[in-house]
Simulated assay, not measured.
Amino acid sequence: MTMKHKVSAVLIAAGVVFASQSVATAQEVSTEVPMAHPTGGVHTIKFFGNSWCGRADDSGKATQVATFGIRDLNVQSSTARFFIDPNKLFPFNSATVQWKNTATGAQGSKTFHKSGFYMDMPVGDVGFGEVEATMTVTRSLLPTLSPGSAIPFFSSTHTETLKVAGVAATACENSLKN
Rank of each mutant, 00 (worst) to 15 (best):
H5M: 09
K6S: 13
S8C: 11
V10A: 07
I12A: 14
F18K: 02
A19N: 04
S20N: 08
V23I: 12
V23G: 11
A24S: 15
Q27I: 05
E28M: 06
V33M: 08
A36L: 06
H37C: 01
T39N: 13
V42K: 05
T44I: 00
F48R: 03
N50F: 06
W52C: 14
C53A: 09
G54C: 03
S59C: 03
S59A: 11
K61F: 09
K61V: 12
T67F: 08
T67P: 00
D72M: 01
S77M: 13
T79R: 10
A80W: 02
R81W: 12
F83P: 11
I84V: 15
K88R: 14
K88M: 13
F90W: 15
A95K: 02
A95C: 06
V97D: 01
K100F: 02
T102P: 04
G105Q: 03
G108N: 04
G108M: 03
G108E: 01
S109K: 07
S109P: 01
S109W: 01
K110A: 06
Y118S: 15
D120V: 08
V123W: 03
D125W: 05
D125V: 01
F128E: 07
E130W: 00
E132P: 05
T138L: 01
R139N: 01
R139D: 03
R139A: 10
L141S: 14
L142N: 12
T144L: 02
S146K: 12
G148D: 01
F154G: 00
S155G: 04
S156P: 06
E160A: 13
T161H: 03
L162Y: 10
L162H: 09
G166F: 06
A168K: 04
A169N: 12
T170D: 15
A171W: 03
C172T: 09
N174K: 15
S175E: 13
L176Y: 10
N178E: 12
